[in-house]
Simulated scan of single mutants.
Amino acid sequence: MSNERPIGFIDSGVGGLTVVKEAMRQLPNEEILYLGDTARCPYGPRPAEQVIEFTWQMTRFLLKKKIKMLVIACNTATAVALAEIKKKVDIPVIGVIQPGSRAALKASDSGRVGIIGTIGTIKSDSYKHELQEKAPETYVSSLACPKFVPIVESNQYNSSVAKKIVSQTLSPLKKEKLDTLILGCTHYPLLRPIIQNVVGQEVTLIDSGAETVSDVSTLLDYFNLNNYDQTAPKAKKFYTTGSPKMFKDIAGQWLDITDLNVTHIDLGGE
């Protein structure tokens, strides 16, 4: 019975849906519970203590739902809260930074890797540390892109405004001669076509969230937690602290699901 429990995903908003999309593709037998803290998004500019507190609130909410594994599908939360949460809960917990770093090193020929992320993720230096620990000679260029998350959260990721902001923000990277760029925020894959256009087709983009799902799959095997029941349809439940309608609009488009099960919850009192 324990194997039929859901996998929990948490994020500051809708960004972690990019991870869920990949999970639905790679792990069709698994039930998914997703919680996006859209009311308090973005996490990037917030102090680390506050991000840790919010991440714990989301974690406790999903632990009450009897999840069997937790995916912190948010780079900012992974950077500051993963180590602490991993130590204190008794289910496997996985973040997005290690898998993204590993994939970047594999993809890069020149050893020149860029990272774009929120202010919090970039300030933490988590990716740089992870990359240079594995391959000390790697050249790492980091850039905070604080305007990207609000574009995605307001459902403007296909707009001309998005094109203009992405182009202006990423212009410093053009002189860096990078061959690989880590999308160090799970919101950014929704801007992927625009980002690719700006940095050029010769730069390999790494989606840290999608890479994480391969690790989830490995851990399910390792802890013998796979759900092998193929008979019942697998539930996908979504919770948001913000507007369910806004969440539904973005999630519906991105996941290509029309009848999304989205519930508003309030974490403030926890």
Rank of each mutant, 00 (worst) to 15 (best):
M1C: 11
F9G: 01
S12M: 06
V14N: 12
V14L: 12
G15I: 01
G16A: 09
N29L: 11
E31T: 07
L33N: 01
L33Y: 09
L33H: 03
Y34F: 15
G36P: 03
A39T: 14
Y43I: 01
R46K: 15
P47Y: 05
P47A: 06
A48S: 11
I52Y: 09
F54G: 00
T55I: 07
W56V: 01
Q57G: 03
M58N: 12
F61G: 08
K65C: 10
K68G: 08
L70P: 03
V71T: 13
A73E: 07
A73F: 06
A77C: 12
V80G: 04
L82V: 13
K86N: 13
K88S: 12
V89A: 15
I91V: 14
I91Q: 07
I91A: 11
I94A: 04
V96M: 07
A104Y: 10
A107Y: 00
G111Q: 05
R112N: 07
I115Q: 08
T121K: 11
T121F: 13
S124R: 00
S124F: 04
D125A: 10
P136K: 15
T138L: 02
Y139R: 09
L143Q: 09
L143D: 06
P146Y: 10
F148E: 12
P150Y: 13
V152R: 00
N158G: 11
S159T: 08
S159H: 02
S160Q: 13
V161T: 14
V161L: 15
A162H: 14
I165F: 03
T169Y: 15
S171G: 03
K177E: 05
G184Y: 04
H187T: 09
H187V: 10
Q196C: 06
N197K: 14
V203K: 06
T204H: 13
T204N: 08
I206C: 02
D207L: 04
E211H: 06
V213Y: 01
D215N: 10
D215L: 13
V216E: 05
Y228L: 14
Q230A: 07
K236G: 00
K237G: 00
Y239V: 10
K245I: 03
K248W: 08
D249K: 14
D249G: 02
I250E: 15
L255Q: 06
